[in-house]
């Protein structure tokens, strides 16, 4: 496949009109038609059904569109990165993160980015999923790293990064800390410390409901780092990412038969122009071997030192 063929294909898939697509691409219509035919030959079938006034993508055209678009975007990205790399120009990265994302997972990548773009200015925001979607929507954030951003905005583009595992954070002298895994029924008398919008807290509560526990006391703690202090004081048990550093007399235990994990994704907005820095950041997140950083599975009792 040749770069210009893909460019013409993408223009035609939008314009659905050979004359207009050719104008947009600044080529003659025969040149555009020829390039499309060549691409069709290589891909083994017609990409467009040519009808007067009703040119449209064939099934094959529809099928290859996302991958050709992705490859083409990556090519544009490669060029913009090459242009901005180690240049004097000012580059900005506005980043939105959900609250439980470990900064230590991102900091090596940010350091690499700062070396690549000497005048990089990073603006970081942490918030709830609705706040993050808002920031992406109004352009205040270019990239987001978060768990599932639910919502009906179809322009969100997600790429999976790593699985974040959660457990229950307990005081070491807590009766549940001695168990090899906690049964749901063990939690009947406990106070749960959850965070707003935390899907794992919600998952746990719904599972508790299934076994008849529906009146458990639930406290809402907005800032994740407030949990350890509260757990330490035996105020309750907290929902906690197992890879997160702990201090004090705390440990993490798992709930038997309950997979408390979620995917962390990188989000961008489909169709937006991205700066070289933002593209580089997204690319570095995607190529990283997260199994080296985020443990995929943990023993039942992970003792904090």
């Amino acid at each position: 496949m040749e770069l210009h063929q893909i460019r013409y294909f993408l223009a035609l898939s939008k314009a659905l009109n050979f004359t207009r697509a050719a104008e947009e691409c600044n080529v003659s219509q025969p040149a555009l038609s020829r390039a499309i035919s060549q691409l069709e030959g290589e891909l083994g079938g017609e990409l467009f059904r040519r009808e007067r006034n009703l040119t449209h993508l064939t099934d094959l055209g529809q099928a290859v569109l996302p991958s050709l678009k992705s490859c083409y975007d990556s090519s544009l990205g490669a060029k913009s990165i090459a242009k901005e790399f180690q240049k004097e120009g000012h580059s900005v990265l506005n980043l939105a993160l959900s609250r439980s994302i470990e900064m230590e997972n991102l900091s090596p990548i940010l350091a690499e980015l700062a070396a690549a773009f000497p005048n990089l200015q990073v603006k970081m925001f942490r918030g709830t999923p609705p706040e993050i979607i808002d920031k992406l929507r109004n352009g205040e954030a270019e990239v987001a790293v978060a768990g599932a951003l639910t919502g009906d905005w179809e322009r969100l583009e997600a790429k999976k990064l790593y699985q974040q595992k959660f457990g229950l954070l307990l005081n070491r002298n807590h009766r549940l800390s001695k168990l090899d895994g906690i049964r749901l029924l063990d939690l009947i008398e406990e106070r749960l410390l959850g965070r707003p919008f935390c899907t794992l807290t919600e998952l746990l509560l719904s599972k508790l409901k299934e076994v008849g526990i529906d009146n458990m006391t639930k406290h809402e703690v907005n800032v994740i780092d407030d949990l350890p202090g509260l757990v330490q004081a035996n105020f309750g048990v907290g929902v906690w990412p197992v890879a997160r550093r702990l201090s004090g007399d705390l440990l993490i235990n798992h709930v038997n038969g309950l997979d408390m994990s979620r995917w962390v994704n990188v989000y961008t907005v489909f169709g937006r122009q991205h700066s070289g820095a933002a593209r580089t950041f997204t690319n570095l997140l995607r190529v990283t071997d997260w199994s080296m950083i985020e443990p995929t599975s943990k023993p039942s009792q992970e003792l904090a030192q």
């Binding site: 893909i6 290859v64 975007d73 090519s75 990205g77 690319n283």
Partner: peptide, 19 residues
């Protein structure tokens, strides 16, 4: 080196699609 999504390869007209 990683050429994610084969963007650089496409830039060189070296990308092919697997049938």
């Amino acid at each position: 080196l990683t050429d994610l999504d084969s963007g650089y390869a496409l830039d060189l007209n070296l990308a092919v699609k697997i049938t």
